[in-house]
């Protein structure tokens, strides 16, 4: 399992990239914990989508854990939710 940090933004994206890259070759299903995410930007969302897609092309699963409100709202506003199969949730300002 990999837990996303509360602040997932471009100025501090290195840990996210390192964490996700380390999970790319993980043979079994990977769970991303998005519970703690308080703020996320497009750069970070783009990275998560790239991760999910690359896992998908390898036939490997990604599972989600935690409250999706901030993450889900960002995914929906960016039109990325269908790629991640995240449910709709209410919008809020960050």
């Amino acid at each position: 399992m990999f837990a996303l940090a509360p602040e997932c933004t471009i100025s501090d994206i290195a840990p996210l990239q390192a964490g996700l890259t380390g999970l790319l070759e993980h043979p079994s299903s990977v769970t991303l914990d998005i519970e703690a995410v308080q703020r996320i930007d497009t750069a970070a969302m783009q990275m998560v989508v790239a991760f999910v897609r690359e896992r998908e092309t390898q036939g490997r699963q990604v599972q989600w854990r935690g409250n999706t409100s901030v993450f889900g709202s960002a995914a929906r506003l960016l039109g990325l939710a269908p790629m991640l199969h995240l449910p709709d949730c209410s919008d809020e300002r960050s």
């Binding site: 299903s29 308080q38 989508v49 854990r65």
Partner: peptide, 27 residues
């Protein structure tokens, strides 16, 4: 601080096929 409404956790899923535009999401 902004109030963050609660929402249910998403189920596990696979992404849509690579290269395809995602279906439109209405906001």
């Amino acid at each position: 601080a902004a109030v963050v409404p609660a929402a249910a956790a998403a189920p596990a899923s696979l992404a849509t096929p690579a290269g395809a535009a995602a279906p439109a999401a209405s906001v």
